[in-house]
């Protein structure tokens, strides 16, 4: 008994430096706290939504077509109204969270891992390879991502994997350039040179000394980018080139509700609201992270905490 109790205690004692401190800063910034809680709820819906509500979200009921919101007569699932085939919007939004979040997560993870790896290479080495990497990034940057995605997705078939790949490719340059710029500066700092003098290998320098310094910036960008990718995916689905029915995403739901705008506004309104609330939360968390992860600015949050 005592053994099992002691282990978590020790783990907690070690952490106040990092995790507990972050939690305390989060607790004192109420807006960011609300945003984080909302995002956790969205993540929960994305993971368990299809598993819990898939049957309810796909069951058609033509007598309940476009049933108005806030009418509890049909049950709590119809609190946001029904869609054009009488399916409960509330359940559909929760189920659609899964695809929306999956595409965004996949795209952000892929572009972050590939982009920052290439950025580390381009920043740390001075070979020809780094020049080529930079030129490639320029090529991708010089064309608007949405249009590139439209062209490629129309020519290949629009599936979840293809959308993730296309969106990831268009976002790689962001991470690449940021990482490279930071690495160029960090490479010259004293502690890196000390490590080199002491005989550390390039791999060790990059992963143990440089990456930890770059990582907070990357995390902040990734949060912001998550919102961007979500909007891009929604726009693609809205244009009819993204996820195809019967799969659903929030953007597709907005588009499906468009023909009924004049008599049933709720079809498009709620999924759009889900998008805007999620991206807003992501932006708020990213803003908070930018301060919380920056040792120079962190005092703003800590002082605010002490006052209260």
């Amino acid at each position: 008994m005592t053994d099992t109790d002691q282990i978590p205690d020790k783990a907690l004692e070690k952490e106040p430096n990092a995790f507990a401190q972050m939690m305390r800063m989060l607790w004192h910034d109420k807006v960011a706290l609300v945003a984080v809680i909302f995002l956790i709820i969205v993540a929960f819906c994305a993971i368990f939504g299809p598993w819990l509500l898939d049957a309810a979200a796909t069951k058609q009921n033509l007598r309940g077509r476009n049933s108005p919101p806030f009418d509890m007569a049909k049950g709590w699932l119809f609190v946001l109204g029904g869609d054009a085939l009488g399916r409960p919007l509330f359940a559909r939004i929760i189920v659609a969270a899964s695809n929306t979040i999956m595409v965004a997560t996949g795209a952000v993870l892929c572009s972050m891992v590939i982009g920052s790896t290439l950025g580390l290479i381009a920043g740390y080495t001075k070979t020809r390879a780094s020049q080529i990497i930079l030129r490639l990034a320029d090529v991708i940057m010089s064309f608007p991502s949405l249009l590139l995605a439209v062209i490629v997705l129309y020519m290949l078939s629009p599936s979840v994997t293809n959308i993730i790949i296309v969106l990831a490719i268009t976002r790689i340059p962001i991470y690449l350039r940021t990482t490279r710029a930071e690495v160029l500066e960090i490479r010259e700092r004293m502690f890196v040179q000390a490590a080199r003098v002491m005989g550390a290998s390039d791999m060790r320098i990059i992963f143990r000394h440089i990456l930890p310094v770059v990582f907070p910036t990357l995390l902040t960008i990734a949060t912001l980018d998550f919102a961007f990718v979500m909007l891009a995916e929604s726009a693609l689905s809205f244009l009819g080139i993204g996820i195809q029915p019967p799969e659903i995403t929030w953007g597709l739901m907005v588009s499906q509700g468009r023909p009924y705008l004049t008599n049933a506004w709720w079809l498009s309104f709620w999924p759009g609201l889900a998008i805007i609330l999620t991206t807003l939360s992501l932006n708020l968390v990213s803003n908070w992270m930018r301060i919380a992860l920056d040792p120079v600015q962190r005092w703003r949050l800590e002082i605010k905490g002490k006052k209260q």
Binding site: L231, A235, F238, V254, I276, L280, N283
Partner: peptide, 13 residues
């Protein structure tokens, strides 16, 4: 922040 988070197709609709 709200402006930067808003999906333009939804605002348009």
């Amino acid at each position: 922040l709200i402006g930067a988070s808003a999906p333009d197709f939804w605002i348009a609709i």
